[in-house]
Design a protein around this nucleic acid. Sequence first.
DNA 1: CTGAAAGCGCTTACAG
DNA 2: CTGAAAGCGCTTACAG
Lengths: 349, 349
Amino acid sequence: MPIPDAAEQFPRKGRVTLRDVAALSGVHASTVSKVLSASSETGRIPPVTVDRVLDAARTLGYRPNLLAASLRTSRSFAVGIIVTDISNPTIPMALLAIEKVLAPLGFISVLAHVEPGSPSLVEDVNRLLDRQLDGMILASSATPDIVLDACARASVPTVLMFGLERRPGLSAVIHDERSGVALLADHLLSLGHRRIAHIAGPQALSTGRSRHAAFLEIMASAGLRQEETPVEIAAAYTREAGRAACVRLLGSHRPTAILAAHDLLALGCLDVFRECGVACPAEISVTGFDDIPNMDLINPSLTTVRLDFEGLGNHAAHLLLNAIDGAASEGDVAILQPRLMVRGSTSAI
Amino acid sequence: MPIPDAAEQFPRKGRVTLRDVAALSGVHASTVSKVLSASSETGRIPPVTVDRVLDAARTLGYRPNLLAASLRTSRSFAVGIIVTDISNPTIPMALLAIEKVLAPLGFISVLAHVEPGSPSLVEDVNRLLDRQLDGMILASSATPDIVLDACARASVPTVLMFGLERRPGLSAVIHDERSGVALLADHLLSLGHRRIAHIAGPQALSTGRSRHAAFLEIMASAGLRQEETPVEIAAAYTREAGRAACVRLLGSHRPTAILAAHDLLALGCLDVFRECGVACPAEISVTGFDDIPNMDLINPSLTTVRLDFEGLGNHAAHLLLNAIDGAASEGDVAILQPRLMVRGSTSAI
DNA sequence: CTGAAAGCGCTTACAG
DNA sequence: CTGAAAGCGCTTACAG
C-alpha cells in the first residue's frame, strides 16, 4: 500500500510555490506556470482551468520567485546603472528619467557607485554582471575603458552616457558639449570680452576633456591668443575645487571673464570674488555649465548653459531597450543640444 | 560500448559554468564550488586542488551565476530602496551613504521610485519583493501602511526612513523634526516675531505632518494665538508649490515671519517677495528646512535647519544589516538631531 | 579530502 | 488541452 503523499498537500516551510498552487487547484505545476506567466500558451488554456488556478494562487497568497524564473529564462529584467557622482544634482534627474521608461516594462534599476580610480573597479563591475543583468547604463563621465571591456566580455547590452566612445555595438547618448561651450563663448565675446579664462573640469572626466578642448579651439578660432585665455584645471566638479582653481587663476592672471566647466565651479568663483571683494559681473563675468536647480536665485544669478538631463536618461533607456531586443541598430548615438541661459553673472566689459 | 561523453568537455553555448571548470581541472563540480565560494569547507581543501581549480577557472574566464547561487542559498544580497522624490537633493546623499555601507559587504541596491498615490503601488512593491530581496529600506516620507504590510507579509527585514511607525520588528531612522521646528521657532521668537505663519508640507508626508504638528504645539505653548499663527499647506516640497502657498497666505494674512517646512518652499516665498516687492528680511523673515546645498549663496541667504542625510542613510543601512542578521534587536529607532543655520533671511522685527 | 545526489522554484519543448 | 521530464547553475548535507 503506497504511502499517501500528504506532505505535498501543504506548503512547506511557509513558502508557497507553484507546486502548492498546483496541488490545491488539482492541475500540474506546468499548467499553473502557463496560466500565471504570460507565455504564448496562456491563451490556449480554458477559462475554467484558469479560474481554478487563479483562485488557488489567491487563496494561498502565491508570489512567484523571480530569481528562479530568471535562472530558467536567462532574462533578469534588471539593468545596472553605474554612477560616480550622485551628489551632482543633475544625475538624479537622469536616473529618474531612466526608471520612468524601464520600470513600466518590468525592469528594475540596480544602482552602483564606483570610484573611477578604485583598484577593485573591474572586479566590482564583474560582480554586478554576475547577477545576469539584461543591460548596463554607464552614467558616469569617468568610465574607464576597462569597464567597457568588462561589459563587452559579458556581452551585455550597454549604453554609455556623457561619453562618446566609438565601439561596435556600443550606444551612447551625450550632450553637445562643444555647442554648449560655443554658446557661452560667443555670449562673452559679444559682450566685448577678450581676456577669457577657463576653469576646466577634471581631465579624467569625458565632459571635462571635451569642454576643455572646445574652449581651446573656439578661443583660437576667435583669434584670441593663449596668454589671453588661460586655463586652470579643477580637481572635481565641486564648489570647493572651483574655489581653489579660481584662487590659482587669479594669482597669475586678470581675466575679464571666466568660463567655468560646471555650475559648481562657477559657484566657487563667486566665493572667491566675495572674499576678495571682486565685483561680479562689473569686474569679472562668470559662467557655469549644466544649470543645476535654483541658480536663478543666487546673487548674482548665474549665466549658464542648460543641459537636458531628463532627455539624456530617457534616450539612454530607449537605446538600451533597443540593444536588449537586439532589434534596432546597436551603436546608435543620441546628441542633445544645450540651451543658453543668460542671467546676471555676465555683463559687457 | 558507452558513448563517450565528449560534449561535457567543452563549454556549451559560450557560457562557462561550474561543470566546465570541473571538467578542465579534473574534479567534481561540488569541489569547484567549495573552492570558489567562500564556504565553511573551503579551508579543508588541499592547496594543490585549490590551485588546479583556480587555474582552470582563470583560463576559462569563469564567472559565477549569482542568480543560481541565490536561488540555492535563499540569499540574494540585494536590498530594495524605495523613494518617491529623488529630485529633492537630499535623497541622493542618503542613498550614497546607504550604498557606502552595503556595497563593500556585497549587497546591491535596487532603486525603485513609487508614486504614493498610485493604484499599482502594492503590486509594484510586491513585484520588487518577488525578487527575493534580503531587505528593504523605505526612504520615502510618504510610505503608506499598505507598503509596510506588503513587506511584513513577505517577512523581509525592513527599515523605515523619515517616518516613525511603531511596529514589531520594524526599525526606523528619523530626524528629530520637532526639535528642528523648535530651533527655528525659538530663533524667530527671540527676534521678536509674534505673527509667525507656517507653510506646511503635504500632509501625506510624515515629515509634513510632524513639522506641522510641532509648529502648532510650539506656537501654542509660546502663548501665540491661532490668528497670529496661520498655516497654509503646500501641495509638494517644491519651489512652485511654495510660491502658490505663499500667495494664498499673503492674500489673507500679514505675518512678520514665515516658517516653511522645506527649503524649496522657502525659495517659493522668496519668489513671491521679489514679485510683490516685499523686502526680506526687513518686512518678512523666512526660514527653510533641510539645508539643501548652496543655500548660503542665494539672496538673501537662507536661515534654515540642517538635517544629516548622510547620517540618516548610514544608520538605516546598519539597522537593516542588523535586521538581516537577525542578530540585534529589531525595532530599533535612531533619531538624529538637526542644527540651526542662521543666515540672512531672518532679522529682528 | 572528494564525489554523487538532491534540490532551490521556475519554464519549456515534447508527448499524448 | 494537460502532464511528465528535463534543466537553468548553483550549493549542501551525506557517504565514502
